[in-house]
Design a protein around this nucleic acid. Structure first.
Lengths: 146, 146
DNA sequence: CAATTTGTAACAAAGGTAGTTACAATGCTA
DNA sequence: TAGCATTGTAACTACCTTTGTTACAAATTG
């Protein structure tokens, strides 16, 4: 099991928007797809989710796509939520009908729940403390070295 | 996307082994399946993984199944690894062929990798600090209250 | 008004999960 | 030692999610 690459693709797309290559060329789903190496429809679907979350503004036709906020104010947790790769609070699936006639069956869900929630929250907090700007700064830094 | 319930089922099964109901009845895959509410083969597959990881000893026929270690020394991270719900270091899937002709495409993977690894490790550390004994103690405590 | 692009539906292929049946191999136990 | 319950495993199914694809109406710029 893996968390869908929709998340990494979304971060990729947002990085493209945050680091415009300035050649005045319109950044269409087609061009983004070229950078990510996927199909333009995949990009449009993700842009639709980012739009719904209020992270980008997308105008049909040759209207262009823009970030609605500064990269420093956008956290990876917001992106993670936006693309709905994991339903909130549901990273771990727990078998749903344990036998209530059994001591363990009766209490396993609540006994596990606290730990699983904490594990999940720990992961999310790392994402919450990383911004889009940190990612683009890192990309730019690596570009200078190489 | 969710992490397979193999993990929660494995913890359930280990709890059954740690909290024997003492009626002298053999704890077969059939009985465990009754407590989890699934098929005995599902239980046997998971027991096979726990055995491979050295957490339990399973003897065919009426040999019985036992923990090989004290519940206090078994962490949920070991169980998580044993049932292989997530390949090591691969919780997040990252699109694998970004375009190297593009600045972002060239560096997105390494720019994301550090954060994603830290997020994953944060989750695993919570599991590493929770033992089977804590789970069974919690189950027993809840049983007294209810 | 023409050309381009977005938004979205519909579909397919691939892979993982969970459940099921079936049966050979194993090893207690009487 | 023979019988019997149980394990280990293969094979199959149904279902769901992910990713990629084609197709086309709706929108908007210029």
């Amino acid at each position: 099991m893996q968390i869908s690459s929709r998340f990494s693709v979304a971060v990729h797309v947002l990085s493209l928007l945050a680091l415009p290559e300035q050649d005045g060329v319109l950044l269409t789903s087609e061009r983004m797809a070229g950078s990510v190496n996927t199909n333009p429809v995949v990009i449009r679907r993700i842009l639709g989710q980012l739009k719904k979350a209020g992270l980008v503004e997308v105008r049909p036709a040759s209207g262009g796509t823009f970030l609605t906020r500064q990269p420093a104010t956008i956290t990876l947790l917001e992106v993670y939520r936006a693309v709905e790769v994991v339903e909130e609070g549901q990273l771990f699936s727990v078998h749903d009908k344990p036998n209530p006639a059994c001591l363990v069956g009766r209490h396993i869900q609540s006994a596990l729940d606290d730990t699983l929630q904490r594990a999940q929250t720990a992961l999310e907090q790392v994402l919450a403390h990383t911004t889009l700007q940190q990612v683009t700064t890192d990309i730019a830094a690596k570009a200078l070295i190489a």
